[in-house]
Amino acid sequence: MRIDLSGRHAIVTGSTAGIGFAIAKGLANAGAEVTISGRTQARVDQAIEAIKQDHPDARLSGVAADLGSAEGCQALIEAQPDTDILINNLGIFGPQDFFDITDATWEQFFQVNVMSAVRLSRHYVRGMKQRDWGRVQFISSESALNIPTEMIHYGMTKTALQSISRGLAKALAGTNVTVNAILPGPTRSEGVLGMIAEAAEEEGVSQEEMESRFTQENRPSSIIQRLATPDEVAHMSVYVASEQASATTGAALRVEGGIVDTMA
């Protein structure tokens, strides 16, 4: 099977690093024109340059905006009014005791992780529906199902994304616009590796040992018994964005190494 996204345009939010960057790179490699988004122009430019080093012919553009606000989402919409593929990847996370999470932090997580996806989907799906073709993805997490006690606020936002994804797919019944949620597990992204490096320094152990301990202690049900790579998640995303995935919609597609102990 050869995935060819030539002639399609994609927007990937939060795509200057980690899973978002890997998805943007994968879509560009499949022939799509891709808009990279990030909070600063410097990060956006670095991401574009990094992709072009491996794929010199990649068609890329960039928008620097804080998509955790209505104003930031509007800035992206004005810069890129239409798209065929929307990957709602933007998200923040961080461990925090439930009793220490302030109202402001709950609101921040909701605005960044959930409302950015709502605002952008509300705009871009209109055009997809008119053209009767489109692909929308919400990058959720296994934490949507396996709520982590150390990140309840994060898990809440990922569960919300799955609800929105399923509902929007049903709202588009009978069209050629598909909507799906992708559920990564712990992934070797910039943010996760930074968190593990900090823990390794505190414990006085190597990064490799801490990665192994993280999986064993925090995700013992993992079947692969390791962190996934961003590219492994991106492979699923690129397929779901393709013509070949036309009958896959309303789904929660897991790329979490078997952590969630169900077959459904």
Rank of each mutant, 00 (worst) to 15 (best):
L90R: 04
T159K: 05
L145T: 12
S237Y: 01
A42G: 06
L161D: 06
A245D: 00
Y239E: 02
V255F: 10
V192G: 01
W133I: 11
V125P: 00
S189D: 05
F99L: 14
S165Y: 03
R135C: 09
A228S: 13
R135K: 08
Q244A: 14
R131K: 12
L227F: 14
S15L: 12
L183E: 07
G68C: 06
G72E: 01
I11L: 01
S6E: 12
I51Q: 02
D231N: 10
A247H: 07
T105Y: 03
S221H: 09
L145E: 10
S140I: 11
E201N: 10
I139L: 13
E202Q: 14
T249S: 05
D57L: 14
E203R: 14
T229I: 11
A22E: 01
Q74E: 15
G31A: 09
S189V: 13
G72F: 07
S143K: 08
H9T: 15
R213Y: 00
E217V: 14
I147F: 04
P184V: 13
T102G: 01
P148Q: 09
S163F: 08
E208V: 13
I139A: 05
M128P: 01
I36M: 08
S6Q: 11
R166C: 01
F98C: 09
Q46Y: 11
D57P: 03
A32L: 13
R226C: 08
S141Q: 05
R119W: 11
A199I: 14
N176D: 01
A241L: 13
Q53K: 15
A117Y: 10
V34L: 13
S140N: 05
A104G: 04
S15T: 12
L145C: 03
A144N: 02
E208H: 08
T102K: 00
V125L: 12
Q80T: 14
K52V: 09
I19L: 13
G18V: 12
T229C: 05
A197D: 14
W106A: 06
D54K: 07
D66A: 14
E142S: 09
S69R: 08
A173Q: 02
V192E: 04
G127S: 11
D84I: 11
N218I: 06
A24K: 02
A79Y: 02
L227K: 08
G134N: 10
M115Q: 14
L253H: 07
V233S: 02
A228N: 11
K25P: 01
L193D: 04
A17F: 08
H123P: 12
V136S: 02
D97I: 11
E201W: 05
I164L: 13
A247T: 14
F214L: 09
L90P: 02
S116A: 15
